[in-house]
Amino acid sequence: MSDTQWQAPGINSKAELLAQATIMLDEMVERYEMYADQMEVANNPEATKLFIWLTEKQSQRSAIVKQLSAGLKLPHIKPWNYNWDDAVNLQTQDNHVAHYLMQPYQVLALAIHVEESAITFFNDVATETADPEVTRIAIEIAKDAHVFADVLKKKQRQYPEPEPGWDDDPDPPLVQE
């Protein structure tokens, strides 16, 4: 769905919040992994390395959220009830960096975008919920995302911003079947 229709879900229990956060983080892991695979297939080792690094980082964060859920029975949430798709959906961003020649700067820009969307999402959850426990955890997750976003930004500064024409390829696409 487009941004205009996006709404923070009203989350009113710790279990519900953790269920959503878990799926969200797991999906991020999966998407970074997919990107790593794509970059590997496209012979872009720098981007591959960064996506693998992102996959690992994201997995660690996912594990922490799962620890928080220990002993709780998390509700099942159907994919179409997530409502936060834009925050995590790397493939469908309508930016032009989703490209086989993408550079580390752009990989990190994607990840920063993800974290910033997550910050907005969890802050919204925190303000809209009636449950103080949910507010507390949501703010914590948002803070964590903030910290990670800062790490990403710092890392991004190590790489140059791509020059115009970064996606020029003198060779035409290959003919397959």
Binding site: Y35, Q38, E40, P79, Q91, H99, M102
Partner: peptide, 19 residues
């Protein structure tokens, strides 16, 4: 590992189908 171009819509269809 898919041979699709990074950014291809088919990755999302793969996700949708597995979901």
């Amino acid at each position: 590992k898919p041979v699709w171009c990074p950014g291809c819509g088919d990755f999302s269809v793969l996700m949708a189908l597995t979901k």
